[in-house]
């Protein structure tokens, strides 16, 4: 019994000591960095999990980036500590060219974070698909849309293909779609960039539902990531 009592006191002491840990702990990061990847104020739509920002903070012994995913609607957010960061989109990531930053004279953006900050990052996409109008008829989904060619100088690239993807949830992209829920047209077959038409049969959906989500994308030759339009819900 005596031994038990000693252990009990010891354990209580330990618990008491361990619980008053306020002295040696950091608060969780609480400063919110939010923003979007934009061109002329319009957000760039990309595929989920494929494009990211990297935040680098100088002054640490070893260097490792904080990876911040860019959401399908072009937005990003991260909870951080106050500090001086360098923001960069990794090389060859994203369906766009990066702009040269005036301050750093490179594609790196200096970010001085003092409290929650909102920061849009301006980029130049090769192409932008837009004005997609969807229609449904006899278990088919058709779309008519336009493609703007943004980069026309020496860096211009061709369209490899344009595509229509459908899925049963809001998550729809080249990677996530219904089996058979895909239609493409090669860049060479597009006669008029302002009048592109695609059509896909609605596959059998289990369990049955009377709507799908659809998206239009452009694949640029020599660029891995696709650029998308916003997702639209289509009822039929």
């Amino acid at each position: 019994m005596k031994i038990f009592k000693q252990y009990f006191i010891g354990a209580s002491l330990l618990a008491a000591l361990a619980s008053c840990g306020e002295l040696d702990n950091y608060d969780a990061p609480s400063k919110k960095l939010t923003g979007r990847i934009v061109y002329n104020g319009q957000a760039i739509n990309v595929e989920k999990g494929q494009v990211r920002l990297q935040l680098w903070e100088d002054g640490w012994k070893t260097k490792a980036p904080i990876n911040v995913a860019i959401e399908p609607d072009g937005s990003f957010s991260a909870l951080l500590f106050n500090g001086d960061y360098k923001v960069v989109i990794p090389q060859n990531d994203g369906p766009f060219m990066k702009l040269t930053n005036d301050v750093t004279q490179s594609d790196t953006i200096a970010l001085t974070l003092r409290g929650s900050t909102e920061m849009d990052i301006e980029v130049r996409p090769y192409y932008i698909p837009h004005s997609a109008t969807f229609s449904t008829a006899s278990s088919k989904i058709s779309v008519n849309f336009s493609i703007d060619k943004v980069i026309t100088d020496a860096n211009a690239k061709d369209i490899e293909y344009a595509a229509l993807y459908i899925n049963k949830t809001r998550f729809v992209s080249k990677g996530v779609k219904l089996a058979g829920g895909e239609a493409t047209i090669s860049g060479g077959s597009i006669a008029d960039l302002d009048d592109v038409n695609l059509e896909v049969n609605i596959p059998n959906i289990v369990p049955a539902q009377q709507y799908v989500y659809a998206i239009v994308a452009v694949k640029v030759a020599g660029v891995e990531d696709l650029i998308y339009t916003p997702v639209q819900k289509i009822e039929f």
């Binding site: 070893t62 260097k63 490792a64 090389q91 990531d93 891995e224």
Partner: peptide, 15 residues
């Protein structure tokens, strides 16, 4: 990151 961080001469792989 620990490899690239420990040696600043290491160039990271593309993409």
């Amino acid at each position: 990151d620990n490899v690239a961080g420990a040696n600043p001469k290491i160039v990271r792989n593309p993409n």
